[in-house]
Simulated assay, not measured.
Amino acid sequence: MDIRQYLDSTYLKTPEQAGLSISENTEVVKQFIREAITEHFKLIMIRPDMVSLAKEMILEAGSKLLIGTVIDFPLGQSALEVKLAEAEKAIAHGADDLDFVCNYKAFKDGQTNLVKDEVLHGTALGLAANKTVKWIIEVAALDNYEIVRLSALIKNVIVKNFKEDQYGSVFVKSSTGFYKTENNLPNGATIPTITMMIENASPLPVKAAGGVRTFDEAAAMIRLGVKRIGTSSAKAISEGGVSESGY
């Protein structure tokens, strides 16, 4: 199985998080972009301020690599207007995929109408620009019942408000990879959580992100039915190695 076209090669650390200077961190981003071009991965997933750089490098290389970026990352608690403005800027800079962090805290607090509103308007903005939209639900912050309900909420908003031929462009995604769990519990994709997401998000596709560390784990996710896998160790995984990263 050639899993490269399932892989969203990911680097989302800020200079502070990486313990690097701004210029050093930018060089790491460039290395990830070059690798993703060379290895023919599906997409490079980077912070919004790096989208223009990626676009320039991809055009220079004549590559078909897609560019993804995160919106309202990693907490997802900004107002809808802030989310939409960030998404519009990312589109203008050349992003192909918009991975919004769903306001999972609001959802947990019972503010389902707020979450429905952001899913509706964020998705409408992305689809109007012919972009792929993903909604990150942060499974490590949710219990099983909440994973089921939030996956279904997103599905229901899309099915009610968009055309069937658009469903494949709206994903439910497991994790940011940045959520801090207690006792070193998994903070991302596991077989049980992805199974719940697929069962309750269908017909929307699912992206497994966070915690996929080996080729076999990636292959297992694909067999379950995921259409994308987010990892910061795409090359290692595609070559049958083991990721040293948590994402």
Results as ranks from 00 to 15, higher is better:
residue 1 M to K: 14
residue 2 D to N: 15
residue 3 I to C: 01
residue 4 R to Q: 11
residue 4 R to W: 03
residue 6 Y to V: 09
residue 6 Y to M: 00
residue 7 L to W: 04
residue 8 D to K: 04
residue 11 Y to C: 08
residue 15 P to K: 06
residue 17 Q to G: 15
residue 19 G to T: 03
residue 21 S to N: 05
residue 22 I to L: 12
residue 23 S to R: 03
residue 25 N to S: 13
residue 26 T to V: 05
residue 27 E to Y: 08
residue 28 V to C: 02
residue 30 K to C: 09
residue 33 I to A: 09
residue 34 R to G: 00
residue 35 E to L: 14
residue 35 E to Q: 14
residue 36 A to W: 03
residue 36 A to V: 03
residue 38 T to K: 13
residue 40 H to N: 15
residue 41 F to I: 05
residue 43 L to C: 15
residue 43 L to A: 14
residue 47 R to T: 15
residue 48 P to H: 13
residue 49 D to F: 03
residue 51 V to W: 00
residue 52 S to F: 08
residue 53 L to E: 06
residue 53 L to R: 03
residue 55 K to S: 12
residue 57 M to N: 02
residue 57 M to H: 05
residue 58 I to V: 13
residue 61 A to H: 11
residue 63 S to R: 10
residue 65 L to V: 07
residue 66 L to I: 04
residue 67 I to Q: 09
residue 69 T to N: 13
residue 70 V to L: 11
residue 72 D to L: 01
residue 72 D to F: 01
residue 73 F to H: 10
residue 78 S to I: 02
residue 79 A to I: 09
residue 80 L to V: 09
residue 81 E to R: 13
residue 82 V to P: 00
residue 82 V to G: 07
residue 84 L to F: 03
residue 85 A to N: 11
residue 87 A to M: 06
residue 88 E to Q: 12
residue 88 E to S: 08
residue 89 K to N: 05
residue 90 A to C: 14
residue 91 I to N: 02
residue 93 H to C: 01
residue 101 V to R: 11
residue 104 Y to A: 07
residue 109 D to H: 11
residue 110 G to V: 04
residue 112 T to R: 10
residue 117 D to K: 15
residue 118 E to P: 04
residue 118 E to M: 15
residue 122 G to Q: 08
residue 123 T to I: 12
residue 124 A to G: 09
residue 125 L to W: 06
residue 127 L to W: 08
residue 128 A to M: 11
residue 132 T to N: 13
residue 137 I to P: 12
residue 139 V to H: 06
residue 140 A to P: 14
residue 141 A to K: 12
residue 142 L to H: 11
residue 143 D to E: 09
residue 143 D to R: 06
residue 144 N to M: 09
residue 147 I to E: 01
residue 155 K to A: 06
residue 156 N to L: 11
residue 158 I to K: 08
residue 158 I to G: 07
residue 160 K to Y: 06
residue 164 E to G: 01
residue 164 E to F: 02
residue 165 D to A: 08
residue 167 Y to E: 04
residue 167 Y to P: 10
residue 167 Y to R: 13
residue 169 S to H: 15
residue 172 V to C: 05
residue 173 K to M: 11
residue 174 S to T: 15
residue 177 G to L: 03
residue 179 Y to D: 04
residue 179 Y to G: 02
residue 182 E to Y: 14
residue 182 E to R: 14
residue 182 E to D: 12
residue 183 N to Q: 15
residue 185 L to A: 15
residue 186 P to F: 03
residue 189 A to Q: 07
residue 190 T to R: 03
residue 190 T to G: 10
residue 192 P to V: 01
residue 197 M to W: 06
residue 200 N to V: 10
residue 205 P to A: 04
residue 209 A to Y: 08
residue 211 G to I: 02
residue 214 T to L: 03
residue 219 A to K: 13
residue 221 M to W: 07
residue 221 M to G: 10
residue 221 M to A: 00
residue 222 I to K: 12
residue 226 V to D: 04
residue 226 V to P: 10
residue 229 I to D: 07
residue 229 I to P: 02
residue 231 T to K: 00
residue 233 S to F: 01
residue 233 S to L: 01
residue 235 K to G: 09
residue 236 A to T: 07
residue 237 I to T: 11
residue 238 S to Q: 05
residue 241 G to K: 06
residue 241 G to M: 05
residue 243 S to Y: 00
residue 243 S to C: 09
residue 244 E to N: 14
residue 245 S to E: 00
